[in-house]
Computed example of a mutant assay.
Amino acid sequence: MPVHRSGTSPSRRSRVAAAGALLAALALLLTLPGAASAAGTAVVPERGTARMGQGVLAHDGGQSGGVGATAVQTEGVDVSGHQGNVAWSTLWNSGVKWAYVKATEGTYYKNTYFTQQYNGSYNVGMIRGTYHFATPDTTSGATQANYFVDNGGGWSRDGKTLPGVLDIEWNPYGAQCYGKTQAGMVSWIRDFVNTYKARTGRDAVIYTATSWWKDCTGNNATFGATNPLWVARYNTTVGELPAGWGYYTMWQYTSSGPTVGDHNHFNGALDRVAALANG
């Protein structure tokens, strides 16, 4: 029997070489288009479960600098079916004075806790509104705006109802920009907000994060003159705003507040929240 006095045995070298080849092949595979989606298949959530800010912490949560908070802010929350039945009195007593409730997603989902959340926030005295989680790869902007309005996204000048929100952000189910070009995304958003205004008489609030807006709309500046901005940034400052907006109306600053739901600052005192509600 041959004795190998130094180095590695041929069989050992063969196993190492095979392992190296496998790792190289895997690295190459992961650089191919669609590989990330394939690798992430196991963690894609169920349709309808998306919620406001779901992608913010992973993609845009750590940036700082830029615009800071003003002296007067009014605390609010946003909730979805994930929160179930909400203890609205507890939130009210903690200082929360306004709320947004998820109503719909795409054209296939309605929040099963909507009635408790929407009516419950109103009953404790909050000014409240609803939001729609957009899926631009499933149906048109107009179709989704109509679905939203028909299923809880309407508006009335009662002093307690905020205009509806288009939640447009990272796609939890696939490609970040839903397979759309920047021009295509801008067209989709415009289709939604124009339809929403035609149905309700109000300009929809746009909820987004600056980095997503840059990537997926090319930092389009045409909505700032008409649609209030709700910007997501989990930090001590709101940071850079998307193009076209000189200030934010609302800022989602954390997904882990002391009480239920994501927590937000309204950029002004409570009378400014009422002014937005009244149009």
Rank of each mutant, 00 (worst) to 15 (best):
V3E: 13
P10D: 12
P10I: 07
R15K: 13
G20Q: 08
G20E: 12
L23H: 01
A24R: 07
P33H: 06
P33M: 02
P33T: 09
A35R: 03
A38Q: 11
A42G: 12
G55R: 04
L57Y: 08
A58H: 07
H59C: 10
D60K: 01
S64A: 14
G65C: 08
G66K: 01
G66R: 00
V67D: 06
G68D: 14
T70F: 00
G76I: 11
V77G: 04
Q83D: 14
G84C: 09
N85S: 14
W88G: 11
V96G: 03
V101E: 06
K102P: 08
T104Y: 09
G106F: 02
Y109S: 14
N111V: 06
Q116H: 03
Q117V: 11
G125A: 12
Y131I: 12
T138S: 13
T139P: 02
A142K: 10
T143R: 02
T143C: 00
G152T: 09
G153P: 07
R157V: 04
R157T: 14
D158C: 11
G159R: 03
T161P: 07
L166S: 08
E169M: 07
W170F: 14
P172Y: 03
C177P: 10
Y178H: 08
M185V: 02
V186M: 04
S187M: 00
T195G: 03
A198K: 10
T200S: 07
Y207D: 14
T208S: 14
A209F: 00
T210C: 04
T217V: 09
T217A: 05
N220Q: 04
A225Y: 02
V231M: 01
A232C: 13
T237F: 01
Y248G: 10
G257V: 06
P258V: 08
N264L: 13
N267D: 15
D271C: 01
D271Y: 12
L276N: 10
N278M: 05
G279S: 14
